[in-house]
Design a protein around this nucleic acid. Structure first.
Length: 221
DNA sequence: AACAACAGCAACCGCCTCCCT
DNA sequence: CAGGGAGGCGGTTGCTGTTGT
């Protein structure tokens, strides 16, 4: 309430992250593990606010993040989960561990929302889910498939830097645990989703979600 | 070839929740 | 128990690249 934004401080840098800043942040987290974001700018000398550091880490530098085109399967997951959960992107992202909530949100806003509006005029969500697959092959994925901004190339570089770290024994068990804490139940659903027919799995997720009071599945964060 | 319009995405902002004191 | 602070989340913005004219 009335609290000034953390980024209002003088000297706090805003805007795109440079590869150098990325490396500093990654090295720090490599040493200390994610968390205690407040201390990151002071300990690293980064002229960024704690929120900015956390966002950069969770959305781009965190190991295991998949970038690039969404698969038709992922698309269907998002569409279905969005129908079930609404715009709870973090909850939706917990079912797609390799994707970030920001990524999913962007993808929804730029691709799927339009498609849903278009499709909903002629059919219901169920048919949308099934037709999405076809649409994906009919050029949906080909849209700007090669869009590789300077950010992307930077991220690739960072990813390469991280390759060694991921395999290193010190890979912060803390970080690993956080990765895994995304939700074992969600992951199990995802795994079974791959195994079973998609419809069956979706129904399972749906049931699982609706049986419990809303939000109880995603209480841990 | 140049310009305008559009689309995609990284990052910021502000509110909310949870936890610690 | 209340207040304050840190982290988390969703909405939104603005920059950059792409496409169309």
């Amino acid at each position: 309430m009335g609290r000034p934004p953390c980024c209002d401080k003088v000297g706090i840098k805003k805007g795109p992250w440079t590869p150098e800043e990325d490396i500093i942040l990654v090295s720090y987290i490599q040493e200390n593990g994610p968390g205690n974001w407040r201390s990151v700018p002071t300990n690293t000398g980064l002229m960024r606010c704690s929120k900015s550091c956390r966002l950069r880490w969770t959305n781009y530098l965190r190991p295991g993040i998949k970038r690039g085109n969404f698969t038709p399967h992922e698309e269907r997951m998002i569409i279905h989960l969005q129908a079930l959960l609404g715009n709870r992107w973090a909850a939706i992202a917990s079912y797609l561990p390799q994707r970030t909530d920001n990524d999913i949100k962007n993808y929804w806003n730029t691709h799927l929302k339009k498609k849903k509006i278009k499709m909903s005029s002629s059919s219901d969500v169920q048919s949308l889910s099934s037709t999405t697959n076809d649409l994906s092959f009919k050029g949906f994925n080909s849209e700007r498939s090669n869009s590789s901004s300077s950010y992307a190339s930077n991220t690739e570089n960072i990813s390469r830097l991280l390759e060694g770290w991921k395999r290193s024994p010190t890979m912060n068990t803390q970080a690993m645990q956080q990765e895994q804490s995304i939700g074992n139940e969600g992951l199990e659903s995802l795994i079974s989703f791959e195994k079973d027919s998609e419809l069956q799995s979706m129904l399972m997720i749906e049931k699982w979600l609706l049986d419990e009071p809303q939000g109880s599945h995603f209480s841990s964060s």
